[in-house]
Every structure is written in structure tokens, then in C-alpha cells.
Nucleic acid binder design. Sequence first.
RNA 1: GCGCCCAUAGCCCAAUUGGAUAGAGCAUCUGACUACGAAUCAGAAGGCUGCAGGUUCAACUCCUGCUGGGCGCACCA
Length: 560
Amino acid sequence: MLEQVKQSLREELKKALKNSGVREDDIPEIGFEAPKHIKFGDLSTSVALGIARLLKKNPRETAEELLRNINLDKAVISKAELAGPGFINFFLSDSYLNALIRKAAEGEVFYSAGTGAGKKVNIEFVSANPVGPLNVVNARAAAVGNAIANLLNNAGFKAHKEFYVNNVGNQTNTFGRSVSLRYEELLGRKIEFPEDCYGGEYVKEIAKQLIAKEGDKYLTKTEEERIEIFKPVGLALMIEDQKKSLRAYGVEFDLWFYESELHERNELERAFNKLKEKGMVKEEEGAKWFTSTAVTDKEGKPLDDKDRVLIKSDGVPTYLLPDIAYHFGKINRGFEIIVDILGPDHHGYIGRISAAVKVGGLLQENFRVLIAQQVNLIKDGKPFKMSKRQGNFISMDELVEEVGADAAKYFFLRRSLDSHLDFDIDLAKKQTEENPVYYVQYAHARICNVIEYAKKSGVLTSDFSLVDYGLLKAPEEAELLRKVASFGDCLNHSALNFAPHLVPKYLEELAGLYHSFYAKCRVVTGDKELTAARLALCFGAKNILREGLKILGVGAPQKM
RNA sequence: GCGCCCAUAGCCCAAUUGGAUAGAGCAUCUGACUACGAAUCAGAAGGCUGCAGGUUCAACUCCUGCUGGGCGCACCA
């Protein structure tokens, strides 16, 4: 809704700029900010500052001229004024704000900007190897990926969540061997457990399940035979386990894509041929290479710093070829925007995959790789190293058990993706009661309670069309109202920048404003008109809190 | 050695992508419950945004060079 206001202001400003003698080509993209201070209005633009240089005029004079030439819809903008070095500040009219709060109160979706225009977005995240339980970084990626998908959908995109299962390759053989060894051990054989095998308890659990089901009948087989049998069974159990963890966490995927399918459908060969057709394959030292350094960005800089082996000299493909095939597949399935969320140890991988995707025909700006930075676990005041091999890592399940899914997700989503995150386990446990998620959830529960009270008192209204919003004049009311009005802005900005952490921020501010309002302005009083207006504000805030939390994948309890 | 990420209040983090007086929470201090939930509110205090330059009307934000921390740099995945 606010987006429309911006658009019409933009057009007005363009006209005014032309009027001032700016050539069409020189008109810059006109952006608006929401000023921090209420005295600077609701929307602010700094075009005059930029354009003044071009016109060789004083910025304030330029702004004044623009202000004279601009036609404002009084129903939407009550005033526009010059401020500071040359800002133009716009103030939303009461009637506009009233219409907006009414929509919010009625629960109407007024905050989707629709900028996505139905574009199909593929967002791949977590994609952990199926050789162990999900860990804390996976939990971070899961929370963030899920929230980004929700944000994109809200902004009018069609987001599709995908989990890529690496069920082929060396690590799966190691995994099969680990299971086999534990199987022998549990049945009384003496074994040497090598360091490069997976030593986690979960491997024993899988072996136990195999024994419970099938007994000791595989003891007579050779290790190779056992691995062949145990590998698929073990992987399937592991994948089930990962699915279960994610379900308990509240994150569902649209598709679990198995690498093995690529092999079965000859997609590797097809991808290889496509690269070859495009002249992006060379042969050297008996291996076949992807000349990724030959792919350049707009400035002509290579996307990758080294060429990469696709097929080794022994004829076996590297991991990269299936990955490329997978990404080509995404393009073929009609996705217009592709997003990968990778772990911190894969940032070196961005270059080669970006190069491949570009060769695959997707514009570089439509491929985004986000790195979920590392999560350092701190326990007893000391760093806690994660290692799948040693098996002494904290799993996603354990994290959820200790702090709860809502709190865990919220905790991850508060931080921007690219910040390294110290996760103090003891503190997270201790903080359960002072975690900001409770602050936001409490605001929601509190509103529900007020509404409940209003209902009991017989003053609840469901028709907001008769409400006189002009009564909401206290500073606490005005600020809350404006915050409600800016929800769409927050979501849109957050979606377009893949920055879900802005949402918790917004919600905490909204919750804070509500708490202040609550403390200062009693909702249910003898004044019927005022009660109705304040109730409308409550409904608006409540709807937004619920929607915002929903986007984050966090619950909005009515009682706590 | 090369590349990527990070450095902001005592602690943990924001800052609408270059905007106006850098903001929340935790911790600390002061005050507020016989009317809708005190998991709350009001207030105080806390800063040379790691250091040094540069770009411009404007820099936490961009460029260069340092310092310190993390992670990568396979014919592994």
C-alpha cells in the first residue's frame, strides 16, 4: 500500500525534475527512506541533493523548486517540506493512516507489495550430507531459508524450498563402512575403528536397528557386501531422521532432491555435453575440466580463480559435475531466480557454481548465494568444536530440546546471516525467560487478553468502519499507528535483500510500542468511541504480530 | 602467499544498502502493580563505529593500506 504512495510520488517528482530542466536520462532512481525521527515525516527523499550537483545549483534551492512544482494528493499526503541540507519530507494524511489502520484491524493483507510478480524462485538450503544428524549451523540455515521463502511469497514471488541430498559419493561409502564396523562390534567381534570413519553414537543406533530387524545374518558376508547392503538402508534411516528433526523444528521442504536421480537420468552426461557445446570444457592431464575462469561478470572479471575438474583422469566425475547438473535442472524446471544458502566452509565454491549457472543461461543477478556464517558453540565458557567424526557435536534436536524450536529459530533469525554467531549453550538455556522472543510473544498474548476482556465487558466491535480514528492522538497511539503502517515496507525490504533479520527487529519495536501504549492508554474504558478506536489499534497490532511471527516460523500464543 | 567473512556501548547485536542527533536487548542504577497479565512500563548511565588515509553536500556503510579473529585455497564432498 505504501508502495503505491511511493510510486505516485516518484512520478510526481520525475515530472518536477523535468520541469527543472533535468534530462530524462539523468533522472536517477528515486528512493524513499522512512526517517528515524517522526518530525521528519513518514517518507523522505534525497533526490534534490543528488541532482543539485548536476544542475550546479544549491541543494536547498533545488528542493524548493521541486516542492513548488509537485502536485500532492491531499488525501494521502498532508504536507511536504524542505528539511536539512535538501531533504524533502512527506507526511501521510490522517485519512490515509485511518484507512490503513482499518485494514490492519480487519486483518486484510495490506502489506504485500507484490513486487515479485509471480516469479518462480528456487531456494535451496540445509542440504546436509545424509551421513549424520543435523547440526546447529543446519538449524541456522533452516530457520533463515524458511523465513526467506515466506518473505518472498509474501512479496509476490513463488518460492520453492529444496533440500539437496548428497546420497552418492565417498562420504556415503565411509558411512556404510562405519555402520558395518559397528554392526560387527555390537555382535561381539573385535574391530579397529578407523579415524576417518564416523564415530558418532548415531552410527551405533543404526547398527542396532539393523540387528533388531535382521539379526546377525550379515556377519558371514564380506565387508564389501555388507557395505553395499548397509549403505542404502543406513542413508534412508539418516534421511528420515533429518526429516524428522526438521519437522520438529517446524521447517518443511517442497522437495527433497536426491543426487542419485541425476545419475539415474543421465543428467551428468547431459550437463557435461552442454558445457562442452558452450566451449567450456578442456582436457588436460587426462582429466576433463570446466574452464570456469573464462566466465566473467559484467566488468569482465572472472567469476572463478581456477578451472575445475569435472571428470577425473580415472573417468570418475567429481562432486562438481552433479552439482552443475542439479543447477542446470533448476533452470530447466523454469526457476527465474535461484538462491543457495551454503555453509561457511563452502564460500570458495561460489565462484565455480556461479560460473556454471551463468553458462546454463541464467543471468548472474538472478543467482544468489548466501553464506550462513558459522555458529560457534560455547559450553562452560569454552569453545566447543563440532565434529561429525568424533560425534561430540550438539545436534539440532538437542538444541531444540534445550531452548525450544521457537526460541531457537528466533535466536538465529535476529542476526544477519553474514555475522558469525557465538551460541552460548548455557546462556541460551538460562535466557529462556528473557529471550526477546518472549517479549514479542507476550505482546501478542497481552493483546489477546485485552480483546478477551473487551468481549467480556460487552464493548467488542467487529465493524471497524464506524470507528473514529481521529481519536488516536496520544503520542503512544500515533507512534504505534505509524509502526503498523510501515510493516509492508519492512517485509518488502527484508525480502528483496534476503535479510530476514529485519523482521524480528521490527516486531520487537512494534511490541515495545504496544507495551508503552498499553501502559499509558487504557483500552477498555467508559468512553465508547475511544474504546472502539483503541481496540481497532489492538487488532491491527495483533494481526501484524501474528503475521510477522508466522513469517519467521514462530508461534504467536494467545496465552503464555 | 592468495581469496572470502567479521570487528559498533561492559556483553550480544541493529542501523531501510551513502542520509538528518549511530539504536534495541542483557547487565548496572532510580522509580511504577487494590481497574484490560509487572514475561511490563517510565527514567538514568553507557560511543573517536579496530587503526591510518582517501572519495563528497553527506561515510558505521564505498576505495586503499594496516591490526586482530574466523573460514577456505584437491583429479575430497
